[in-house]
Write a protein that binds this DNA or RNA. Structure first.
Length: 570
RNA sequence: GCGCCCGUAGCUCAGCUGGAUAGAGCGCUUGCCUCCGGAGCAAGAGGCCACAGGUUCGAAUCCUGUCGGGCGCGCCA
């Protein structure tokens, strides 16, 4: 299918350039005035004024006089530094609707990612407990980013790094042996207990290290025991993450990267720069100050323990090289803010050894109203708990609203509402800000929420169900949509491609989430002010139905990027 | 102590590649279901955009400092 660039104001460019030959298209942009009574579209004159060395207000006045706009412009007047135009809204609106409906599910994508491969690693939760919403922020950000890049035709491969190594897993394995038939629900308690005990029980802690050493040496029996525990965890975690709509292409196990010939070469490169040494405890340590790290804090990076076993970072380097061997053009990973220094350190090492440096996407922690989450104090919101409770509440609403649907159908919808609530509340916040998560607020489904967006979609679907036949994708020549509510909605729809490209550039879906809110609000106003099925004329009804269809298409495309499904009824 | 991120309405957040009168939601006050789905709409109250300087014709947006919060800083992953 063809990508339709919807730039409804394109036809206004040529007349301006004709009047001012010194300018080119890049000097012009189109925006919405703060109030619609100031004009339908505003053209800021700052850039053009700079080029022509004339004050913006003077240029705006001059342009209003000089430019010969065609029939699409009914009035041009300068307002300060802006040239505000009043337009033939029907003609421009028709272009917008036609563009959206022709592009369909591709509307918003410019397809610029075609032929570009992306490897994106995200989630990678330690196998120790059911994920809470804080951990899940990684999964939601990562999954939506994958969807965003795929929407733009990038070839995206999602990787999940399974931390099936390390001392803590060793301890967990020991505890698991004692308890027998460990279940996923018991793992967190077991994990906490194991770490507590290791603090007091020297022999137990030592046994953990020994087990880890055997694991590294490749002892098959030990590997089996580790795998049994980590698989149990991963399976349980994935069950919850899948409920959220997350998908993963490849699972990489940390234990695969204990020994890697490429690391020897990497260490050699560091030696050439005099950046590695063996310390008094026989550890292999990188001195990052030799390869660009300026501060004393975080200067040293340990690769191998005194007994020769590898540290997490050492394995991670091997893993990174392995991912790079896949030949992706873009290598991204979603990391918590606590990994910032660590990722920088890895980056320095990779760069010093002549390897490319992956691109990190950072996010900050989710806080609760009364402070930080604490697994040990039980001050957490488990993702599965939120989804269960939210789905129960949604189910009650759906049962009232959709009495003719089966219980199973109602449950499917309720689950979609619950997922929308959590994904939207997390995704709409800028990733590098802390979010304060309020369980109750997020359970109300009112106001600036995912369910509100879904509700807009359900209303449109409801109208579509009531009419006989299909709504044509080709608007009639006569497209008499002139009200402010219609115009505001249409221009917002036309913004979508820019929102997508902005998100791609900034590597975040937050602007897309906020866009769906703005669009839904404008739709609700339109819906309230403009009768659709009861419009005064047949042609007006059709035009409005087409606006509704274009709105639904845009919302659907945006929600798809966010990983939120829009049920036809709710 | 040092480094990175953040500070916008009572609360939760938009807006930040500098541009018109700083926007939503929740909560509070008022209207609106004999009208396409009230998970909604319309209106009101509520802001020294943390504070202090600077750059600019113009700063919530850029720079510096202060204060407040989050995160990190050599055998955890």
């Amino acid at each position: 299918m063809r990508n339709i660039p919807v730039n409804p104001f394109e036809s206004l460019v040529a007349p301006i350039l004709a009047a001012f030959p010194e300018l080119d298209a890049d000097d012009l942009s189109f925006g919405t005035p703060p109030k619609l009574d100031m004009g339908d579209v505003a053209i800021p004159m700052f850039l053009a004024a700079k080029k022509l060395k004339s004050p913006p207000p003077k240029l705006a006045a001059e342009a209003a006089q000089k430019v010969e706009f065609g029939s699409e412009v009914t009035e041009a007047k300068p307002m300060g530094p802006y040239l505000n135009l009043r337009l033939n809204r029907g003609a421009i609106g028709r272009k917008i609707v036609a563009g959206v409906l022709e592009a369909g599910e591709r509307f918003g994508s410019s397809g610029s990612g075609k032929g570009t491969k992306v490897v994106l690693e995200h989630t990678s939760i330690n196998p120790n407990a059911s994920p809470h919403v804080g951990r899940a922020r990684n999964a939601m950000i990562g999954d939506s980013l994958a969807r965003l890049f795929r929407f733009e035709d990038y070839d995206v491969e999602v990787h999940y790094y399974v931390n099936d190594m390390g001392r803590q897993i060793g301890l967990l394995v020991l505890i698991a042996d004692e308890l027998q038939n460990l279940t996923f629900d018991q793992i967190l308690d077991a994990y906490v207990a194991a770490n507590e005990r290791a603090k007091e029980d020297e022999a137990f802690a030592q046994a953990g290290y020994e087990l880890l050493a055997k694991m590294e040496q490749g002892d098959p029996e030990t590997q089996k025991r580790f795998t049994a525990v980590t698989d149990l965890c991963l399976k349980g975690q994935l069950e919850v993450l899948t409920r959220l709509g997350g998908t993963y292409d490849v699972f990489d196990h940390e234990s695969k990267y204990v020994k890697d010939a490429r690391l020897d070469a990497l260490v050699e490169k560091l030696k050439e720069k005099d950046a590695v040494f063996i310390d008094d405890d026989k550890r292999l340590v990188v001195d990052l100050s030799k390869i660009g790290h300026e501060l004393e804090e975080g200067r040293y990076f340990v690769l191998l323990r005194g007994n020769g076993s590898s540290m997490y970072g050492f394995r991670d380097l091997a893993y990174t090289l392995d991912k790079q061997a896949l030949g992706a053009d873009i290598n991204m990973m979603v990391l918590g803010e606590d990994h910032k220094l660590y990722a920088q350190q890895l980056g320095l090492i990779l760069a010093a050894a002549g390897h490319p440096v992956p691109e990190p996407i950072y996010y900050s922690y989710i806080l609760l109203k009364d402070g930080k989450m604490s697994t040990r104090q039980g001050k957490v919101v488990l993702l599965s708990d939120f989804l269960d409770e939210a789905a129960t509440l949604a189910q009650e609403r759906v049962a009232e609203q959709c009495t003719d649907l089966s219980k199973e159908e109602q449950q499917v919808i309720a689950e979609q509402v619950a997922v929308a609530a959590i994904r939207f509340s997390i995704l709409r916040v800028t990733p590098n800000k802390n979010v304060i998560f309020d369980m109750e607020e997020n359970m109300k489904f009112v106001g600036d929420t995912g369910p509100y967006i879904q509700y807009s979609c359900a209303r449109i679907n409801s109208m579509m169900r009531k009419i006989a036949g299909e709504v044509s994708d080709v608007p009639a020549e006569k497209f008499n949509t002139t009200s402010d509510a219609e115009w505001a909605l249409l221009t917002k729809i036309a913004e979508f491609p820019n929102v997508v490209s902005g998100g791609l550039k900034q590597r975040t879906c937050a602007p897309i989430a906020n866009y769906t809110l703005e669009l839904s609000r404008l739709f609700s106003s339109f819906y309230n002010e403009c009768p659709v099925l009861k419009a005064k004329t047949e042609s007006l009804m059709m035009a409005r139905l087409q606006i509704c269809k274009a709105t639904l298409q845009t919302l659907t495309n945006a929600l798809d990027i966010l990983g939120i499904e829009a049920p036809e009824r709710m």
